[in-house]
């Protein structure tokens, strides 16, 4: 099975975010970047499938020079090959990102494309469905369980108050939700071999953004409220002041 895993290099979730001088992107100077947490789950799933059924795992990212470190992490976990679509200070929207990714995947043999459920920077959940649309293949998002049997498969996706069981044919795009698996840590040996694996690079194509960030603001922080003496005071405040009960 040929598996492609799309991974994004994103700010660590503990980062304090500041807005850059241009007002439309963040100041990245003091931020450490990591492999998107959901994409770790996608990488893990590809490795489990490869171990069980055989195959080849290619990881792919679109991002600046530094994004290669997330590719190295995925290679150290056990991916076989990597593709880096280079785009420094990329300000493209999901559409432009997905178009670039789909164009690259089109050149490869693929049965399964794995994504994370969402990039923890733009919080979209859009690139997986868009890539699938551009490639004309089915997609299942927010997946917590996955089975592949030859040319078909079955996935469970989380919905409000339960799960949907989706049956599909391959090739397919799957976006991983937490709970699908527990990602492994790269082993020492993995890290060493990853250094010798090659990363193929190409330049991103700029497409005109269909949706564009024109302004970024830090939301006003909530002001600290009152410390109350006890339960009856709390109920009184919720009833009479907040009027929420």
């Amino acid at each position: 099975m040929n598996i492609v895993v799309c991974v994004k290099h994103v700010p660590d979730t503990a980062s304090r975010i500041r807005i850059g001088a241009n007002g439309t992107s963040i100041d990245t100077s003091d931020i450490s970047f990591v492999l998107n947490p959901y994409d770790e789950i996608a990488v893990e799933e590809s490795l489990k499938l490869k171990e069980a059924q055989g195959g080849n795992v290619t990881v792919l990212t679109l991002g600046g020079e530094n994004a290669s470190s997330s590719l190295r992490t995925a290679l150290a976990m056990g991916a076989d090959e990597a593709i880096h679509i280079k785009a420094e200070n990329w300000q493209g929207d999901s559409y432009a990102t997905a178009k670039n990714i789909a164009n690259e995947i089109q050149k490869l043999p693929f049965d399964l494309i794995l994504f994370g459920k969402q990039a923890v920077d733009d919080d979209n959940l859009a690139v997986p469905q868009m890539v699938a649309e551009f490639l004309g293949i089915p997609s299942v998002t927010v997946v917590v369980s996955l089975e592949i049997n030859g040319n078909t498969g079955k996935a469970e996706r989380e919905i409000e108050g339960g799960k949907e069981v989706v049956e599909f044919s391959l090739p397919v795009a799957i976006a991983a939700q937490k709970g699908l698996n527990e990602p492994r840590y790269p082993s020492m040996k993995g890290i060493m071999t990853a250094k010798r694996k090659t990363i193929t690079t190409i330049e991103a194509t700029q497409f005109e953004a269909k949706a564009k960030i024109v302004k970024m603001e830090i939301p006003a922080s909530r002001s600290t409220g009152k410390i109350l003496g006890g339960v009856s005071e709390l109920i009184g405040s919720l009833k009479n002041e907040a009027k929420v009960i």
């Binding site: 559409y95 979209n124 868009m130 919905i159």
Partner: peptide, 23 residues
């Protein structure tokens, strides 16, 4: 932006070449 809306809107946007804003 329900589990269905979040899944569906991007696929529609890609199909018709529309810009998308989520959530």
């Amino acid at each position: 932006a329900t589990s269905l809306g979040k899944d569906l809107a991007p696929r529609l946007a890609a199909k018709i070449g529309a810009g998308l804003a989520t959530d």
